[in-house]
Amino acid sequence: MKAKKITTMALATALCMVLSFVESQIPAFVAIPGVKVGLANIAVIFAMYRLGWKEAAVVSLIRVLLVSLLFGSFASMFYSLAGAVLSLVGMGILKKTGKFTEIIVSVAGGILHNIGQIVMAGILLGTDVLRYYLPLLLISGTIAGVVVGVASAILIRRVPE
């Protein structure tokens, strides 16, 4: 049982890495930092529904560390970390209410990830970009969240226990 849990977590982490790499190969279609699909969240949501919140948090934080080391920079780790933590907390709370499907959990995750990143950017750069970017990041976070949420729902149903 424990070995199975560890294996599933490793699988989800590996999936995170692959999805992050795939996403890093997609050219940015909007010249605004923070606007992206967040494909890696598919694996985090999968872990959250299959294993639990703590396990999903571990997968997500390992992903942030590894992705920053492999494809990003030291600075990008702080942005990702802020986004990942905020997104994990929000998704955990929404999932716990039991009222919503993966779609809303994922949309909240997408939006909160963006907000976390931009707040961290505001703190590190000492600018007030938040005010201007927020509406745009709400739009991109919602669209990306739906895409990721639907993909997660399919994954959770298709992958055998």
Binding site: F100, T101, I103, I104, V107, L138, I139, T142, I143, G145, V146, G149
Partner: peptide
């Protein structure tokens, strides 16, 4: 229903 909520949010 959740897709609808997401649409309203958008």
């Amino acid at each position: 229903r959740d897709l609808l909520i997401a649409g309203v949010l958008l």
